Amino acid sequence: MKFSAALAFTDPDQYLPLAKACDEAGIWAVACSDHVVHPRQISSPYPYTTDGSPRFKPQTAFVDPFVAIAAMGAVTERLRFFTNIYVLPLRHPLGVAKQLASITSLIGNRVALGMGVGWMEEEFELMGADFRTRGKRADEAIDIMRGLWESEPEWFSYDGKHYQLPEIEMTPRTSEPVPIYVGGISEFAYKRAARLGDGWISDLMTTAEVGAAIERIEHWRAHYGTQDKPFEYIVSCSDAINADGFARLEDLGVTSVLTMPWVYTRGFTEELDERLAGITDFAEQVLSKQ
């Protein structure tokens, strides 16, 4: 079992010291969240809470995840990074492809794109992106990015419903494919992960809910003929808090638990020193027994 650290809602000053501590402790990856703006008035319901209210408040720090990953990658050696979740159809795929290829050329192949289609219609409107077509555009964006990253052919073109590109090339290209993990807990997300993804990222779920989601994704992987491809199951689990709980997740097919490692011994602290000590505790009490 691998473990990933969630840096959502973290003070920007803590990113680099936490990344270095995770790298030294042997944590597999850290995850960075994404939003561009927070409108004062939001009518779009947040899909992951019972009352539709976001888990974060205005003035919560959302560092641009690609900037954060590049900075953390420069001060670490083994630690991997992924976004959780990057709102892909909020942007044009050419810009996203360029950023990811540039990061990997600087820090190596330690980056994955955790993507979703988004939920906040107001943010799409402010960014000039069509909320209604976000799913289809995300699918095309994945095709475009992978085409631009490939070493062959020399020139790439695309003729889709939402994106049309003449023959172009983008340098630097990636020396290895950037993994794309699909986030979400809808049937649409499960199908997209199975059809186009290299993995799936959950929301906070119980072990039983994780098992049901994996069953659905494996159903669709069989349907699309993608079961032979390597696939990451990255989950946040509310009732897996010890070795037995992690073992049950592993038996279901989970490959990485996404958590806040300091919570297990230091609680939901925002103090950097306590978080760093909690990462050390986690390495001694959990990682050393894996």
Rank of each mutant, 00 (worst) to 15 (best):
Arg55Ile: 15
Pro58Phe: 11
Val111Glu: 01
Gln59Val: 15
His92Leu: 04
Arg110Ile: 06
Ala68Met: 04
Leu79Arg: 08
Asn84Met: 14
Phe56Thr: 11
Thr104His: 09
Val75Arg: 07
Val96Phe: 00
Ala101Cys: 11
Val67Asn: 00
Arg55Asn: 12
Ile69Trp: 03
Lys98Ile: 02
Phe62Asp: 07
Leu88Lys: 15
Arg91Thr: 03
His92Gln: 05
Pro89Phe: 06
Arg80Asn: 12
Ala74Tyr: 06
Ser105Asn: 15
Leu106Asp: 13
Gln59Ile: 11
Val96Tyr: 00
Asn84His: 11
Ala101Phe: 08
Pro58Arg: 07
Val63Trp: 00
Val75Leu: 06
Pro65Ile: 02
Thr60Asn: 08
Gly73Arg: 03
Leu90Gly: 07
Gln59Gly: 13
Lys57Phe: 14
Phe56Glu: 10
Val75Phe: 05
Gly95Tyr: 05
Gly73Tyr: 03
Ala97Pro: 08
Pro65His: 03
Ser105Cys: 13
Leu94Ile: 08
Gly108Val: 12
Gln59Leu: 12
Ser102Pro: 14
Gln99Asp: 02
Ala70Cys: 04
Val111Arg: 01
Val87Thr: 15
Thr104Ala: 15
Leu106Ala: 12
Thr60Tyr: 08
Thr104Tyr: 06
Val67Phe: 02
Val87Glu: 07
Val63Pro: 01
Leu79Gln: 03
Val96Trp: 02
Lys57Arg: 14
Leu106Pro: 14
Val87Arg: 06
Ile69Lys: 01
